[in-house]
Design a binder for these strands. Structure first.
Lengths: 250, 250
DNA sequence: AAGATTGTATAACATATGTTAATCCACAGG
DNA sequence: CCTGTGGATTAACATATGTTATACAATCTT
């Protein structure tokens, strides 16, 4: 294996956000990186708004987000929608599709989306052949749990303004793992209605609370970005716990 | 292997709720049942209120609930508590403790509790030696996600009365998998404050809403049980989706 | 360029839920 | 038997958030 090629496969150089994410966590061998890249060969593009997982329907596929944002959500019979969370580049949907072949949520493209379509049997293969990657996926699972737990905390115990700040901080911390430093700017491709459906609030109150955060100078909002003007103050006021998202420590 | 012993190990007869749960899902071999029982040899008893997982501290252990109820929760710096969910007999806590060795939630005994203490390395062993069990655990993971997702739906998009009904239905459906038929009676070992902290409401409003459900005859409440008087009507009014918790289908 | 559509911004008003406080009850401990 | 404690219940009042409605801005369509 010529060493000249090796550098092209370093996690930081890799074009795959999943490799960047796992590579930030542990040292991946070239073989492991190649395997992970190979996993993502079969891609699918989805335009904004396209559902690719439908609550209640058969789910026998694993998806890896390569580019763009997706949302996981449920719609109640009265039409109200609850967004459960956001899938960013490097995130995996349908990692655990074994006996249960029925989706318990829907997923759709929030932006133009590039997905890798993976046969779940290849996931099983991982735990047999690539223990390091298997550990990495297990870490991803624990992380997804923590993120969804934080979502429950937002919905259950935070005020409207806190919920907004808390969500922005979550996304900002998650991007830190897969993207180069963007300062305190955060991309916000979702509409205020999306935010409302994420945070369990009405559209009007979302708008009000956003304005209130702007007015006190905690955030700056542009067309589709938010700037976190004082991360420390935002963490304080929203009771955000960065440890739930921090990387491997010790 | 003498066949006389075999019957004692049938899932339905097994004393282990984890085996009952997985056995309801797929046909386990005697070897698999024995392995699962052996996993749970090292037990630990915890009295009501004892924390056995502490948010932010090291977590290098997997726990299996054998008897009793546990809660997973977080406490905010202002002292408010959010209960994320309930662990019932057969449920596993800390199934994914790989690189991340830090707990992102606390867990404590809601009732006197019997836990199996498992070395997480044995979990890794499972995916190599017991593919069926591995699939079962993967199913458990997907189920935990669905349950936590339902919790987010409750908190984000349901009214106080709906949240209560929805939670009772969840617990009732979950018990159906591990316990003999108890009719419409459901054990409720939690206080109204616990319910409030689960459903993101105040104690007083929890009491009010409970009374309102009683008054219209949807539920009957005794000391530490609830009777679901009209499951269908409760499902309707709370927008509960039984599919999120139903067993393997097709 | 006009009109349609989608998202944002505010106001006025309605209400579900939170807060504080006081009783009441069951039960455990002396 | 008294008394302390934790939990349940209820009332009165406060407020955060929801609802409805209108206007405005930006973008897309033809």
């Amino acid at each position: 294996m010529p060493s000249g090629i090796a550098t092209d496969l370093k996690p930081a150089m890799s074009s795959s956000p999943l490799v960047r994410k796992l590579g930030a966590l542990c040292l991946l061998s070239e073989e492991e990186i190649e395997f992970l890249e190979g996993l993502q060969n079969n891609t699918l593009d989805a335009e904004r708004g396209r559902d690719f997982i439908v609550d209640g329907s058969d789910l026998r596929t694993t998806f890896i987000v390569i580019e763009g944002w997706a949302i996981r959500y449920s719609v109640l019979s009265n039409g109200r929608r609850q967004i459960l969370g956001y899938a960013l580049p490097g995130d995996i949907l349908g990692l655990h599709v074994n006996f249960r072949a029925t989706a318990t949520y829907s997923a759709s493209a929030l932006t133009p989306l590039k997905l890798a379509v993976v046969d779940p049997r290849r996931i099983i293969e991982i735990s047999q052949k690539y223990p390091i990657i298997a550990s990495g996926l297990s870490w991803c699972t624990a992380r997804e749990f923590a993120i969804l737990g934080d979502q429950a905390i937002r919905l259950g115990r935070l005020s409207a303004r806190q919920r907004l700040a808390h969500l922005f901080l979550e996304l900002w911390h998650r991007f830190a793992l897969i993207e180069d430093d963007n300062g305190n700017w955060l991309e916000i491709p979702m509409t205020q209605q999306d935010l409302a459906d994420t945070l369990g609030m009405s559209l009007v109150h979302t708008n009000r609370s956003l304005k209130s955060l702007r007015d006190v100078g905690l955030i700056t909002v542009t067309k589709d970005h938010v700037r976190l003007n004082d991360v420390k103050a935002l963490i304080e006021m929203s009771e955000f716990n960065p440890d739930h998202l921090s990387e491997f420590e010790i």
